[in-house]
Amino acid sequence: MDLGQAISQKKAAILGKWFRLIMDTYPLDASGFLGREKDRFANPVGYTISREIEVLYDELLQDMDSEKLAASLDSIIRIRSVQDYPPSEAVSFVFLLKKAIREELGDDISDNQAYADLLAFEARIDKLALLALDIYTKCREKIHQIRLNEVKTETERAFRLLEITRRMHDVPDAEEHPGDGENLSP
């Protein structure tokens, strides 16, 4: 049996393995919940990951449509980039697929041809990982931008307030009291 066939035939097993490996990157105590609870609203994290890795898997086997790949990667990485992960761990889930395949297909990778096929497939996974890094960076940039926006609106608001205040005379000193020109938005 050629490896491509094996990979598509054992899809369910490999995906299951991949999902469990990803869940293991969460604190041990949470993975039970994330992996078990199936409701997409009660457990959005587990649901999103299990749904999107299936799309990724299918694309890896077919034509690697980069838009579809990006969309699926985005759904997962968007979550992981706000969770407590350093960049390496946030995108490491892609590489876990290699581990899942090698563990599930152990016996099928017997001859040289199969091994060459495997390496070719893994090259695709590496591409995916690079894409993932791009997306991760974009997500982080987005977070910074949102933060900046928020600071900016606050500053704008503060300036507006200052402006109004300056128009008046005899207003209390801005330095000594709370509430003048340095507001935070509740």
């Binding site: 307030l161 205040t165 009291h177 709370p178 509430g179």
Partner: peptide
């Protein structure tokens, strides 16, 4: 506590 609102908006503002 001082101005009456969280944003610190004084009465004229």
């Amino acid at each position: 506590f001082r101005t009456g609102n969280h944003l610190g908006v004084p009465p004229h503002a």
